[in-house]
Simulated scan of single mutants.
Amino acid sequence: MRVKFQLQMVMAKADIKKQKILIERLAEIGITARPLTISNIYNNKIKQLSTDLILGISVVTNSSPGDWITIEYDENEMV
């Protein structure tokens, strides 16, 4: 099993077309995010994520963490 991020989906729903715009909007609410961090979330390559960034992304995209953070199970894993 693994955590899967669907940042591109909530960005599209919030009409945020570029990662740079997301970073700017996060900064407006006092949350610093490095471009590499946002890119890694966007591309499902991030290994850990701060709760502040989860909160900020959710606020900026008007979503809940469960809208863009999911658990993906392997075929042979029981739920």
Rank of each mutant, 00 (worst) to 15 (best):
M1R: 01
V3Y: 08
V3L: 10
K4T: 08
K4P: 03
F5W: 09
Q6S: 06
L7N: 00
L7C: 02
Q8M: 01
Q8V: 00
Q8T: 02
V10C: 05
M11W: 04
M11S: 03
M11C: 08
M11E: 00
A12S: 12
A12I: 03
A12Q: 11
K13C: 07
K13G: 03
A14V: 03
A14T: 06
A14E: 01
D15S: 10
I16C: 06
K17I: 11
K17R: 09
K18L: 10
K18G: 02
K18F: 13
Q19N: 09
Q19R: 08
Q19Y: 00
K20G: 11
K20A: 14
K20F: 05
I21G: 01
L22K: 04
L22G: 05
L22C: 04
I23L: 06
I23Y: 00
I23N: 02
I23G: 01
E24T: 09
E24C: 04
E24Y: 00
E24N: 09
R25P: 01
L26F: 02
L26M: 12
A27M: 05
I29H: 08
G30A: 05
G30C: 05
T32F: 11
T32Q: 08
A33E: 01
A33T: 00
A33H: 05
R34C: 08
R34W: 03
P35G: 08
L36E: 11
T37D: 07
I38Q: 07
I38Y: 02
I38S: 04
S39W: 10
N40E: 14
N40H: 10
Y42V: 01
Y42L: 08
N43F: 02
N43D: 03
N44G: 11
K45W: 00
K45Y: 00
K45C: 00
K45G: 12
K47D: 14
Q48W: 01
L49H: 07
L49V: 12
L49G: 10
S50P: 03
S50M: 03
T51R: 12
D52W: 02
L53W: 11
I54D: 08
I54Q: 04
L55F: 14
L55Y: 15
L55D: 15
L55K: 14
I57G: 06
I57E: 04
S58A: 13
S58L: 05
S58I: 09
S58G: 10
S58T: 05
V60P: 10
V60I: 15
V60Y: 05
V60C: 11
V60K: 10
V60W: 06
V60G: 14
T61K: 12
N62R: 15
N62E: 14
N62G: 09
S63E: 07
S63I: 04
S63T: 14
S63F: 07
S64N: 14
P65N: 02
P65D: 07
G66Y: 09
G66T: 14
G66L: 12
G66E: 09
D67N: 12
W68F: 10
W68C: 01
I69L: 10
I69C: 04
I69P: 03
I69S: 01
T70Q: 12
T70L: 06
T70R: 13
I71K: 06
I71T: 14
E72H: 15
Y73T: 05
D74V: 13
D74A: 13
E75R: 15
E75G: 15
N76L: 14
E77L: 13
M78L: 15
M78F: 15
M78D: 13
V79W: 11
